[in-house]
C-alpha cells in the first residue's frame, strides 16, 4: 500500500505514514480549520491499512507540539484503532514525543496512555523538530 504524505501547513502537521515499513509519523501543530477535511483522508488510509492481513509491527511517532481539542479527539480515535489491532495480536508501539519543558503535553500523553492496554506506549522527552515539508 502506498505511503501517505501530507505536507505541513500553518495549521496542520506534517503527516508521513510509511505503510510498507509500518512507521507512521505526525509532526508539527494541529488546529485545522475543518477537522473532517484534514483528518478524513488520514482515517480512510489508516482504516484501509489496518484492514489488510499484513502483520508488520507498527510504530506511531506522535511528534505534535500543539493540537486543539478536535485534533485531540481525532488522535484518540487513531489510538483506539491501533489499540484494536494490537488486541488482535499485532505489535503496535506509540512513541509520544514532547518538549522537555512542556508539562501539559507530557500530561496529555500520560492521559492518552491510560486508554491503551495492548499498545506499547512510550513517553519521549525531546526538543521539538522544526516542522518542514517532507
Amino acid at each position: 500500500m502506498d505511503s501517505l504524505n501530507i505536507a505541513a501547513t500553518g495549521r496542520t502537521p506534517d503527516v508521513h505514514f510509511d505503510f510498507a515499513s509500518g512507521v507512521l509519523r505526525m509532526r508539527g501543530e494541529s488546529y485545522p480549520d475543518d477537522v473532517a477535511t484534514f483528518f478524513g483522508p488520514i482515517f480512510s488510509a489508516l482504516r484501509a491499512y489496518l484492514a489488510e492481513p499484513d502483520k508488520t509491527p507498527i510504530r506511531f511517532d506522535m511528534e505534535l507540539v500543539y493540537f486543539n481539542s478536535s485534533s485531540a479527539k481525532a488522535l484518540m480515535n487513531i489510538f483506539q484503532m491501533l489499540e484494536t489491532v494490537a488486541e488482535g495480536g499485532r505489535d503496535v508501539a506509540i512513541d509520544w514525543y514532547y518538549e522537555p519543558d512542556d508539562d501539559s503535553m507530557m500530561e496529555l500523553g500520560e492521559d492518552f496512555s491510560e486508554d491503551l492496554k495492548a499498545v506499547a506506549f512510550t513517553m519521549k522527552a525531546r526538543p521539538a523538530h522544526k516542522t518542514s515539508p517532507g
Binding site: V35, A36, T37, F39, G40, F43, S70, K73, A74, N77
Partner: peptide, 9 residues
C-alpha cells in the same frame, strides 16, 4: 467524505 469525529460514540 464520510467522517465524523464522534463515530465511536
Amino acid at each position: 467524505m464520510d467522517f465524523t469525529l464522534f463515530d465511536a460514540e
